[in-house]
């Protein structure tokens, strides 16, 4: 008898629509939708019985409820494996795939697997909990990423041992397995030491993680005297987008003067961010850039003053490297203007 798989996809791959449907809650469908078709064709002796679809924003904003509903759908179903994605470098989708895979694994104890790009924030969040295949950055890598998931999924279904991360192509889970090798420990140690001294490559079973943590900045001493700057990755720009900031995978940023403005007016500012439905922010840009309430608090004396400029870019598909470079370009301007503290609003 063939085994059974259930697939999780977001609203886009579930063919419900784009950002306009990102807020829809979870639903379950008998049969094959989107990537489920390819999984069904490629999984060995295994049929995909159901496709679960959930909007990325719904999962992002209501994770407990979304997970509870989906676990409810699965409660009375038989399945041998649960597969989510691939999620590429879609941040919300990656976090959703990780969240649901972990929940399904914890509740039902079945094998789970997904795929993400190394830049996807969901990767670092969940790689220790579940197997996440190393995927491409954009959806055009679907065929390759899906095949990589299938290869390991077929091993899981057959009850075979899944090999080490580097061999199988998933992100290291941080677990070590005991294996017996021919070489004795002393010889192996000396070989690694020689390689290290010679600057050659070697693989240790103990990987020292590189964590980039920043020391916590001291708080502002007196909020009432502080000059505060507002920054966003939500893509709020003047309507003509003078700096031609890209709607996704941004490499540019803008600096915009708000002297004399009590709020950001619709029709004067808008969002060019391609990662969410822009309707609400275009109707009232203050829902992303809260200039209106900051002006009120400035008058009330809650804090010293609002910096004359705000800084904006788009944070969807943007690599950490680019984000870091853009911040390093903005930083000297903030320092030159004696900005004491910053608020960053992300979408």
């Amino acid at each position: 008898m063939s085994k059974k798989a259930i697939i999780y996809v977001n609203q886009f791959f579930g063919q419900l629509g784009g950002e306009d449907t990102a807020g829809v809650g979870p639903s379950i469908h008998e049969g094959l939708i989107g990537p489920a078709m390819a999984y069904n064709a490629q999984l060995k002796d295994c049929d995909v019985t159901h496709t679960i679809i959930c909007g990325d924003n719904y999962m992002g904003s209501n994770p407990e409820d979304a997970v509870a509903q989906i676990l409810g759908f699965l409660e009375n179903l038989e399945f041998d494996i649960f597969i989510a994605g691939p999620a590429f470098n879609a941040g919300r989708y990656g976090v959703a795939c990780g969240t649901i895979c972990k929940a399904v694994k914890d509740r039902f104890g079945v094998p789970v697997i997904t795929s993400m790009n190394q830049e996807n924030p969901g990767m670092e969040m969940f790689r220790k909990d579940i197997i996440i295949m190393k995927g491409g950055n954009i959806a055009s890598k679907m065929r390759k990423d899906l095949a990589a998931v299938v290869k390991v999924a077929n091993k899981m279904l057959a009850g075979e041992q899944v090999g080490p991360a580097a061999e199988e192509g998933y992100f290291p889970t941080g677990r070590r397995h005991q294996v017996f090798i021919e070489e004795d420990a002393t010889t192996r140690f000396m070989r690694m030491l020689h390689a290290r001294i010679a600057g050659e490559e070697f693989v240790s079973e103990l990987i020292v993680p590189k964590l980039d943590r920043v020391p916590i900045a001291a708080p502002v001493k007196d909020l009432k005297q502080a000059k505060v700057a507002l920054l966003t990755t939500g893509g709020i720009v003047p309507v003509d987008n003078p700096d031609r900031i890209q709607s996704a995978s941004a490499t540019r940023w803008g600096k915009y003067d708000i002297t004399g403005m009590e709020r950001l007016e619709s029709g004067v500012f808008k969002t060019i961010h391609a990662g969410f439905d822009p309707a609400a922010a275009n109707a009232d840009p203050n829902v992303i850039m809260p200039i209106d309430v900051l002006r009120a608090m400035e008058k009330e004396g809650v804090f010293g003053s609002l910096h004359q400029y705000f800084y904006s870019t788009v944070g969807t598909g943007t690599t950490e490297k680019e984000a870091s470079r853009m911040a390093k370009e903005i930083l000297p301007l903030l320092q030159a203007d004696n900005v004491d503290a910053c608020i960053m609003v992300s979408t």
Binding site: G60, S61, G91, R92, V95, P121, E124, M125, D212, R213, V214, P215, I216, A217, A218, P219, V220, L231, T233, T313, E320, A323, S324, M326, A327, K328, I330, L331, L334, Q335, V339, D340, A341, C342, I343, M344, V345, S346, T347
Partner: peptide
């Protein structure tokens, strides 16, 4: 971006929806 600004010693607060992402990034 938050990290690069904080690295320079300027306190910065991150207002965001998916808090675990913000924590993971640092």
């Amino acid at each position: 971006m938050v990290k690069e600004i904080e690295r320079a010693g300027i306190p910065i607060v991150h207002m965001c929806n998916i808090v675990p992402v913000s924590k993971t990034v640092g």
